[in-house]
């Protein structure tokens, strides 16, 4: 008898749940929105995502939470974002690495699996050496790389096939140097690479300028160039590669996107809210005080930017000999 009562209780519980689900949605959004962040809590991407989530929540009138799905050099998070229900309640916080997953054989996800909301940040790669290095411009450095025997120079910056590694490979190639003339010491992110450079265990690192800025300002390191189209007004005394005659700019970026099958009206709601967020003073102040660059590309513009970059990577991966 007791068991029967129990069973009825349980069944009621389960069906009650099913009925709750049965009610149709009225307007988007009417429940909490989730941002999937492919990088771990406390990192740069996570911090911007959490900051934006707060502002977005005010715009949408619904809670916005950040979920960290980390691992596999971004494969886990990007996979989760691409395969989420296409209802607009799950946003992917895409980063540059979404372009590389297929080439590296980590996942079949490409930018084509997403519909863009917008891009909100871009940070150019910078070439940094120790302060007592004899080279004062990228040209001097690269000439030396050309002249000295292969394997003399040791580069670092981040892991294999990451944005800083790819930026380095293409830079060397643009200057007519075989990327294999230098040794590349893979590291788990920019911080350990900076440590290696400070300890004089490597010669050159490529990573974003804000990451090395404290060391540069303290006179321990010097940044020779940034791989951007124009000088950044925040650190205007650092020349670009283009000024030094090397036609190459590259960097990482962050943006939001939803799965490809998401309805357009839902996407529009998200896009409008997000536009307001990235135009707000709070957002601009936050990015500035953290040293993150602001670059806004909305919808189709962001889509085509990603696809172009994705296509261009085929050559760089070929040069590097990574992946298949």
């Amino acid at each position: 008898m007791k068991r029967i009562i129990l069973l009825i209780c349980l069944l009621m519980l389960v069906f009650g749940g099913l009925f709750a689900e049965g009610q149709k949605e009225v307007t988007f959004p009417n429940k909490p929105v989730t941002i999937v962040c492919p990088w771990s809590a406390g990192g740069g991407t996570d911090r911007t995502a959490r900051f934006i989530a707060d502002l977005l929540s005010a715009e949408l009138g619904q809670p916005v939470q950040v979920v960290n799905k980390t691992g596999g050099a971004g494969a886990v998070g990007h996979n989760a974002a691409a395969t989420a229900a296409p209802d607009g309640y799950t946003l992917g916080n895409l980063t540059f690495e979404v372009n590389t997953l297929k080439y590296l054989g980590y996942s079949d996800i490409t930018p084509a699996d997403f519909k863009s909301v917008l891009q909100f940040n871009q940070d150019a790669a910078a070439v940094t050496v120790s302060a007592d290095s004899p080279y004062n411009t990228v040209k001097e450095l690269l000439e030396a790389v050309k002249k000295e025997p292969a394997g003399t120079f040791v580069f670092s910056g981040s892991g294999i096939g990451t944005v800083w590694d790819l930026a380095r490979i293409a830079m060397l190639d643009k200057y007519g140097i075989d990327p294999n003339r230098v040794k590349y010491v893979p590291s788990q992110g920019a911080a350990p690479a900076i440590t290696e450079l400070l300890g004089n265990h490597v010669d050159v690192i490529t990573c974003s300028y804000p990451e090395v800025a404290p060391q540069v300002e303290a006179g321990k390191l010097k940044t020779l160039a940034v791989m951007a189209d124009e000088r950044n007004p925040q650190f205007a005394d650092i020349p670009t590669l283009k000024e030094q005659g090397i036609d190459w700019s590259y960097g990482t970026w962050r943006g939001f996107a939803v799965p490809d099958d998401t309805p357009d009206d839902v996407l529009k709601v998200l896009q409008d809210a997000m536009k307001k967020v990235v135009e707000s003073k709070e957002y601009i102040d936050f990015m500035n005080s953290n040293g993150f660059g602001i670059e806004i590309r909305i919808g189709a513009e962001f889509d085509s930017y990603m696809m172009e970059q994705f296509a261009g990577l085929a050559d760089i991966f070929e040069l590097a000999g990574y992946g298949n």
């Binding site: 691992g71 596999g72 590296l104 980590y106």
Partner: peptide, 14 residues
């Protein structure tokens, strides 16, 4: 950068 023993599974990749 090679994924070892991952069998194309994103979680094992991590």
């Amino acid at each position: 950068g090679y994924p070892r023993f991952a069998f194309k599974n994103a979680e094992l990749m991590g």
